[in-house]
Every structure is written in C-alpha cells, then in structure tokens.
Design a protein around this nucleic acid. Sequence first.
DNA 1: AATATTTCCGTGTGCGCACACGGTAATTGA
DNA 2: TCAATTACCGTGTGCGCACACGGAAATATT
Lengths: 359, 359
Amino acid sequence: MKDNLSRVKISDIAQRAGVSTGTVDRVLHNRGEVSKKTRDKVLSILDELNYQPDILASTLAMKKTYRFATLFPEAGTENLFWKAPLAGLNTALSEIAPFGVTLSRFLFKYNDQSSFNKQLEKIVSEPYDGVILTPVFYDSTSLALEKLAETNTPVVFINSNIENLGNLSFVGQDARQSGLVAGRLMDYSLNVEGCITIINFINEKGGNSHILNREEGFRSYFESGNFTKPRHLNTLNIYTHEQEEVNRILLETIGTDNPICKTMGVFVTNSRVFRVANFKKGFGLSNLILVGYDLLESNIDHLKKNNIDFLISQNPWEQGYKSLMALFNSRIMKKEIMKNQFLPIDIITKENIDYYLNN
Amino acid sequence: MKDNLSRVKISDIAQRAGVSTGTVDRVLHNRGEVSKKTRDKVLSILDELNYQPDILASTLAMKKTYRFATLFPEAGTENLFWKAPLAGLNTALSEIAPFGVTLSRFLFKYNDQSSFNKQLEKIVSEPYDGVILTPVFYDSTSLALEKLAETNTPVVFINSNIENLGNLSFVGQDARQSGLVAGRLMDYSLNVEGCITIINFINEKGGNSHILNREEGFRSYFESGNFTKPRHLNTLNIYTHEQEEVNRILLETIGTDNPICKTMGVFVTNSRVFRVANFKKGFGLSNLILVGYDLLESNIDHLKKNNIDFLISQNPWEQGYKSLMALFNSRIMKKEIMKNQFLPIDIITKENIDYYLNN
DNA sequence: AATATTTCCGTGTGCGCACACGGTAATTGA
DNA sequence: TCAATTACCGTGTGCGCACACGGAAATATT
C-alpha cells in the first residue's frame, strides 16, 4: 500500500498541467469556463497522479454546515428500545461534528399517526441535508419521501423498512431471518415432547409487518427439514398490554394442561416477551422455554434470572450509529452507500449479555 | 443540546480578552511567555465561552503526521483468522487517513518467538506514535513495553491480553466468559443422555492461555447449578494438526461406543473445530453436537452444512477497527480510552452467519 | 475596422489554527 | 542615568482548498 505522506495537491497538478490552480478547481467541480483541451489535459493528470482531495482543507474552506434531522418514537416506559439508537446517534455525531454536522431530533408518539405526520411536516418544510426516520406509517412516509426527493434530500430508514420508496439506505435487521434464528434456538432448547406457541403482541393501529415476518421465518424453520424433531406450532395474537389481561389469556391457553399438545416453548415476536416472562415466573412454569426480542431492562432482568432463555437483539445502538454515518459518508465523504445495511442478528444469553450493554 | 453552528474561535476569545490570537494560542498550548494575569483572564474566558478547537483546522495547520505500527501473526492457511483484523484496520485507516495517519504493518510467523522478537525490535527502534500488537510471548512483550514507555508510545493489545504491562488498552474477548456461553449452548442443545468432551488443540510452543480460560469457563457453567441436566465432562488434548492423526485419536476416544459414557457433545476450545467436523462428517456421527470458535472458511462451510452447530465469534474485524480507533482517539482526539474494550461474544448459527460476514 | 461580447483563465482572499519572528515595555545591571 | 536583559505580546505567513473577481484573448456584431 502506498504511503500518502506526501499527498498530491491541487497546485501540483496545476503546475504539471501548466495551468493555474483555479483552472484545476474548475474542472474538479465541473463548473465550466474551461476549454475542452485543457480540461482533458487536467483530467488525465488528475487521474495519472491519483489526486485525492484533502477533505479537511475542503470542509474548512467551504465552511458549509450540514443539517440532518431524525424522527423516532419517543422512548416511553413501554418502548425503551428507542433510547439506544439515540445514544448511537450521539456517538456518531460527536465523531463527525468537526465536519460541520448538526442534528435536529424530532420525536413522535408511539403508534400515533397524526403525531408522526406533524413532525414529518416540520422536517419537510425545512431544508435539511438528510433525514433519518423509522417508516412506521406507509402513506405518510411515502408522501414525505416524494417531497424530499424534489430537493434531493437523502433519507435513511432505520429499524423497519419499506421497499421502493427511493430511500438512500435501510439500516436494520432482516426480520424474517431473525425468525429463523429463533427457530433454531427453540428447536435446540426444547428437548422434550410438546408444542410451541408463537405469541404476537399486535398493535391495532398498524406497524406489525415486522412481527409477521418474524413469525413467518420462525415457522419456515420448522418446515425446512433442518429441525431436530418435528413440532406443532400454534399462534396466539394478543391485543392488550395489561399484565393482568395477558395473564388471563395465557392461563387459558398455554397454562392449561392440554393433554394433546402442551406448550413447552414460547416465541414472542417482539420486545413484549417480558409480559410472558412475568406470567411464567408468577405461575411457576420454570420449564417453559422462552425466546423473544430486544434488550429492554425488564427483558434483561428476566434473562439474568433464567425466566427468558434467549433474546434476539436488533443492535439498536448500532442502528443509530450507522444510519447517521450513512448520511455522513454519502453527503460529506461522497462515498457509495449500501442500499441495505443488515445488522447482525445477535443471540443474547445470560452469559454474554454484559458485552452487549457497554454502549 | 446547543447548536455549535457558530463555533467560538480563537479570535473571538482574543477579542473578548483584549489580547491577540498569539497570546491565546500561547496559553492554549502552555508554552509560557504570558503573564499570570492575562493567562488567568484568557483561561476564564476560554472556559466561559466553552472554546472547542477546530480539529480540522488544527491538523491542517500542524501538518503533523502520525505513524502507527501493528504486529500480527501472518494469516497462513492454518490461521486465516488474522485476515479479518487487518481488514478492520484498513477500514479504520481509510476513515482517519485525512488526519495524517499512516500505518506500518509488521507480521510475524505464527508461534515463532524469534520472528516475533525480530519484528518487535524493528518497531521499537523507530519513533512510532502508537503500536498495536498481540502479546503472545510474555517476556518479549514486557521488554518491548518498557522501552516504548520511555518514549511515551501508547500500546494497544489486541485479541489476547497481558495484565499490568502499562498498555493503553486491550481490545478483545473475555475468554473465560466465552466458555460459559459455550456451556449454555451445549447444555441446551444436548437433549439426550451422554457425556461431553472438551478438545484442546494445544500448541507446544505456548500461547495457550486463551484455550485454558475457555475450558475453565465451560466447566464452570456445568458446576454453576444453572444447567438443565448434570453432565460428565472429559478433556482431550490434541497436539497434532494432521487430519489423519486427529481422526485416529478421535476414533479411539469419542468414536468408540463407550457404554458408560458416550460422548454426545464436543466443545473445541479454538478455531480448529473444523478438524473435528471433518471427522464427524467422515465417520457419520451426525448426532454429535459441535461447538467451537471463529469464522474460518472451513468452519463456515461446516456450519452451513450442519456439521457444526454453534460457532463463537471473536469479532476479529471489529478488533482491528477498534484497536486503531483507540490509538486515534487517544493521540489525535485527546479522548480518554477505556482500559478494557471487551467485544461481544457473538453466537453464530447457520441462520445468522451471513450477517456477520459483511465485512 | 472599431466596438461589444463571449470564452477562457490567473490571482487574491479567507476558512481556523500553529508557530516563527520581531517589537515594545518592564526590569536589571553598571 | 543609560544600556542590556528579560518578560511579554502582536503580526504575519502558511496549511490545502473553494470561490469571487477581474483581465486577456478570441470571437461576434455593426
């Protein structure tokens, strides 16, 4: 690898081409006023000497600032998940702030489309240089993307994805594939006869595509032929968040001693797995294998106390970090960005969780 | 959070303090020639206005270059592991190269102490601004660290660690804890009666502390009381790398139909797990649960073909990335660095491996 | 042919900082 | 009291780049 100690600068190629630095600058930025002949000459020398602009001097001279905006759900008590992406975002920001990057953070109320719309309008109405958002509502997102496209404002989707909306990039997890991982874990962990119940905590206001993909992945694992023994799968959709209510429902279903097909394993398709863990602990079902999502505090507690066996983490911190870096690399560093930035499907147990909490 | 759009610059505080920029510069860099009175005044205004130097302009003006050196084992056919840290290193380098960072990469022959010493002497004899190395040989490393301390050259340990040698940081995995994770996986995966065999591929020339810590962690899992059923553990040390020889040994031990305690699970304490997988496949022991380390190509192959059940990854790419960033953040960005940077203990299965291979 | 217009290009300045240089005021020495 | 130090401080220049401005040469217009 070459030393770039003595980097070639604009004045070098200007001299080599027998022109002034201003001319070189003009061809570099394609702003005309250069004859084809000299343009070609400069271009060839540029290539020959492999000129790389000094990004530091460049941003210093331009004195341009970049304004990015983010739109996430508020991190309420019920969805602490969204604290982590903000932390990752802040770390990324501290690294790239010297380049004149500033961030405006917008929050909307979880599952409240009008709140989502309101914040989105704020963002669209101002000239941001890039936007990071989680596209939970299709029509609102689609509309906003159209407007942002008019001003060539790049948009990064974070955590969940909508295809073909012209976004710059998606940073998140492959939901279906994570279901397959859960399938493997459940299959290996269940060493007795019995059924598996898939529990979806459904939001009536929408935004459940995640959950469905995860269930589908999970089911496909047990249809793939890779499983160690065949299992019967039931699906249970729960529409409440009240623990009492959940307990009642679970007691009627997996809590009963169904002689035909007793539930020995439960896969919860989102972060509400702690609800089932509460039930499991409260009703003494210590043999139940429990697999779910996300490192919420209550989930972590249950994992450490063996009430949850495996958690799948979506790398929320990393999501925040990478999504901002995507905008930065695209706009400031002029690099190509991968359309889909799938983050690893981390398998978390009591034994390795501490090393996923450092951030 | 405050906007730093209009950052306060040296001239601002100079004006505010009624002095010149040169004076401010002098107190900023502690190079005297300033009366106590004006010094205090500048200092207080510096604090009041929360002056943050523009790192870009600073590095541009200083025109200082930083030379870092790395010392890794060669990535031979037997230890492809070391390709990944180099890749991570290169990514980090491309990000910080604008700051005048250059890298000299030194390689030593695996398990060859004289080669290690030779390369280390090269590094010590030149005035590097920071060193990244994997401290496989205690005495050599200790000696080098002493010399490097004289010139205040920070050293980052990567992958393996030695305590109390005055290194700036350690970037790697908690070996013992990873053994605990392996224990959990083995415990959950083994749903039949039978014994577990721990296989250590020992290097007679030393550098086995990793392996021993992993075994200890693994054993402690089964002594913790958290296991689902008690297991009997055997240890098998293998000193050869020849597949034929390995086959012969395994055939005599885990391959025989020992009626008392048949081996149903094997934990290989390092990346040589593919040797056992070869044996497992060749001799049709498809029920054997196999857990090992590291995403070598041959291990990946076996994982995808269900010959290996779980791999534990040490994040080698991340190790390379983070170790260089540690030096960068310490020397250029003047940030505090964490002494131990433990990387996650990633659990890899056939289903999630693709998302760990992107780099 | 003289003027007006366009095409093309060089020069100068500033971004924020680091540092060399030289100058003035205060202090010392005789 | 006057010169010689010393302590203290301001000014100027350059890092590599972006961009405004203005000027010379080429071409068009009448």
